[in-house]
Design a protein around this nucleic acid. Structure first.
Lengths: 209, 209
DNA sequence: TGGTTTCGCTACGGGTCGTAGCGTAATGGC
DNA sequence: GCCATTACGCTACGACCCGTAGCGAAACCA
């Protein structure tokens, strides 16, 4: 976010905060209606009631703009209140994440940005700090809760603990994204319950389904 | 694949199979060097030594072309020979899938295509039949092996069995993709072993790490 | 040889990109 | 109140890519 604001000067006309909000909202709306490939900067400018040059004064291009627009959706991503069990917490996280992925602007933008990030290291770092880390925090918090309850063992080695947290995050976020976007099936309570059971007990448990 | 071939006529000049191969190879090379956003049809035509019009006679556009080009990478995706245990089979599948995702053309193309597919149902079906189902088959085969060995219970209800298979597929493929592309960390044997242990035994098992 | 289809090539209108230039609006310092 | 400074809206522009049309030549079959 601060990477696009060039150190606010004490003098001169200030940038319009209203324009910022209008542009980001217009960006999300355009993503919904047009998808990624038909999304254009000129269109966003028109929707926001703003000159095209104003967009380029704040964002270097399509990618940076969309990162900020989508990141705002993840601002409200919080862990649900403690429900007493790890299973309930996991289901809560999965359903909240899935609710975000049901928004068309999030679906199309997230995958497109990840695709771009494979050939743009700076963009990847931007996505990580603006979006991915906010999701990951939920996993870390839920894990801490479970360890306090004694549902999960506490790992003394911080490196090993970090690796485990990364693993769990990739499994949860990966499964939800794959279910929602690749398989294109709903992440409903039924699926969420099955997934949570699998994650907690593993494949070898006879109570898979 | 056959959807782009308009019923081969008995008469007239046949389409050049060599051009087909050259175009698909040039497509993959262009994806590697340019990524998705800078990828253009004209560039592919030049690389393949072919006129741009020839591309459009066979593929409707960028998306269809890239689907076929990337699908060829998945042709060779097979389940490794039986290694005797479910754990070994899972690790084999994960590592083979990860090897594909290490190729830059696969990374950038798969995510971009999924992004496009969120606003293009026909493309989504195409991706499913050309790419996703081939991965899924590996999971189904590995699952059948494990059930024959008695490592996994056989589910009598075919609908429930299908749901379970879908779940396992989303978990495996999702975790690998998320690790490789979002977290951008290597899917090496160490991670694969940790993941397999988690998948088999679940979070609650004390031997998480 | 004649009919049919593909191929390479050129050219084109339409659209997007990202930037430059200009006059105007809004702020803070004096 | 005046000035320096910065943001804004607007227009225009060259560059690029898209997808298609039209042409003559090439390759195949009957």
């Amino acid at each position: 976010m601060q990477s696009r604001t060039p150190a606010p000067r004490a003098t001169g006309r200030p940038r319009s905060a209203a324009a910022d909000a209008a542009i980001l909202a217009a960006t999300r709306q355009a993503l919904v209606e047009l998808g990624w490939s038909k999304f254009t900067m000129g269109d966003v400018a028109t929707r926001a009631g703003v000159a095209k040059t104003t967009l380029y004064r704040r964002w270097a291009g399509k990618n940076d703009l969309v990162v900020d627009a989508v990141a705002e959706l993840f601002d409200g991503l919080r862990l649900p209140p403690d429900r007493g069990t790890l299973a309930a917490d996991i289901e809560g996280v999965v359903l909240r994440f899935a609710a975000l992925l049901e928004r068309p602007e999030a679906r199309t933008a997230l995958m497109a940005l990840i695709a771009e990030s494979t050939t743009d290291e700076a963009l990847r770092a931007r996505i990580r700090s603006s979006i991915v880390d906010r999701q990951k925090r939920l996993v870390l918090e839920g894990r801490a809760r479970a360890q306090q309850r004694g549902e999960l063992p506490t790992e003394p080695d911080p490196e090993a603990a970090a690796r485990t947290a990364d693993l769990i995050f990739d499994v949860i976020a990966g499964a939800v994204v794959h279910r929602a976007l690749v398989s294109a099936e709903p992440v409903d309570p039924e699926w969420t319950r099955s997934f949570t059971t699998l994650l907690l007990n593993g494949l070898t448990a006879s109570t898979t389904a």
